[in-house]
């Protein structure tokens, strides 16, 4: 009885697991032929074409850029299919590690998320720089700039009223991301110097959209949102300078604006086939010089 029961449950689990795996990796089934058959080498726009199908999964912050790039790449190379999916940086890293995706998109370094033994299996491709903007509800007046130190005091709960940083007399309402968020990890590292946020006194929202909605509708609210999202919501949010530097593509590219970090595309081992061709394309001029600034990201190399 016991034996047959355990056999049954083992079967159950195996079947469930394979079902789920099949569902997850559905798009990544046929990976690009490793032979790297570069059928149309160096086509018109400097695009190297390879044929096959790959999947890039992960960061929702990078997703708009990679989706657009994938579309352009597929237009140039008819034999290639690049599926782009969201799911979050953690999903991207674990999927590329497990082989469920060919490329894992992440806002943060794999070393910050994965065990060291796992992280070393992945190869980092820095494809872009992305920035975030500190935003406040427009009801707060008199604040246009925060220093790193002021931001830290606000986010750790030491400053709780806007009048203490030169603004109007209004309580500060913090809107933060969940602890697992890549945005929160980046902000914590770059601005807070690792200090712990006052999460017990804050609202938590998980996406740029939800954060934007919460800040624009709550008087005194402040948060950080992706630079591209800020550009679309300039009317309803006030963006702040950081240490006197304004968030612009130029300032992010040359490093003078500090709240910016690399967007990563990870592969397991060195890429080949379509994955390699597409990653090369991500660093090519049509992407770095045209698409990247158009979508309010900054190029990887300041000069490019």
């Amino acid at each position: 009885m016991t034996k047959s029961h355990s056999t049954l449950s083992a079967l159950t689990l195996t079947a469930a697991a394979s079902l789920l795996l099949a569902a997850c990796s559905g798009g990544a089934g046929a990976s690009g032929s490793a032979s790297g058959s570069s059928s149309g080498s160096a086509a018109a726009g400097g695009v190297t074409c390879a044929s096959g199908s790959i999947t890039a999964v992960g960061s929702t912050a990078l997703q708009p850029l990679i989706e657009q790039a994938a579309k352009q790449y597929q237009d140039a190379c008819s034999g290639a299919t690049v599926n782009v999916q969201g799911g979050g940086s953690g999903t991207g890293l674990s999927q590329v590690l497990s082989g469920g995706a060919n490329i894992g998109n992440s806002d943060i370094f794999a070393e910050e998320k994965l065990k060291p033994a796992d992280a070393t299996q992945l190869v980092d491709h820095k494809v872009v720089k992305q920035g975030w903007v500190m935003v406040v509800n427009p009801s707060v007046t008199g604040v246009t700039n925060l220093t790193k130190d002021q931001a830290t005091q606000i986010w750790t709960g030491k400053i709780t009223n806007w009048k203490d940083v030169g603004g109007s007399d209004a309580p500060i309402v913090l809107v933060i991301r969940p602890e697992s968020s890549g945005t929160r990890a980046t902000f914590k590292k770059l601005i807070l110097g690792g200090a712990t946020e006052a999460s017990g006194k804050a609202l938590t929202e998980d996406s740029n959209g939800a954060v934007t909605k919460a800040v624009e509708s709550t008087p005194g609210a402040t948060s950080i949102i992706g630079f591209a999202y800020f550009q679309q919501n300039k009317q309803s949010l006030t963006g702040l300078q950081l240490d006197g530097v304004e968030a612009t593509v130029k300032n992010m590219a040359d490093g003078s604006y500090k709240l910016a970090a690399f967007g990563h595309m990870y592969t397991k081992g060195q890429p080949s086939g379509v994955a390699k061709a597409f990653l090369d394309y991500m660093l090519s001029d049509p992407i770095q010089k045209t698409l990247v600034p158009k979508l309010f990201y900054a190029p990887v190399q300041p000069g490019s």
Binding site: T60, S89, G90, P178, S180, S181
Partner: peptide, 14 residues
């Protein structure tokens, strides 16, 4: 739903 996409399968958090 907040943490799902940003944790890595196999870690205690997940």
């Amino acid at each position: 739903t907040l943490d799902m996409g940003n944790t890595v399968a196999g870690e205690p958090w997940n």
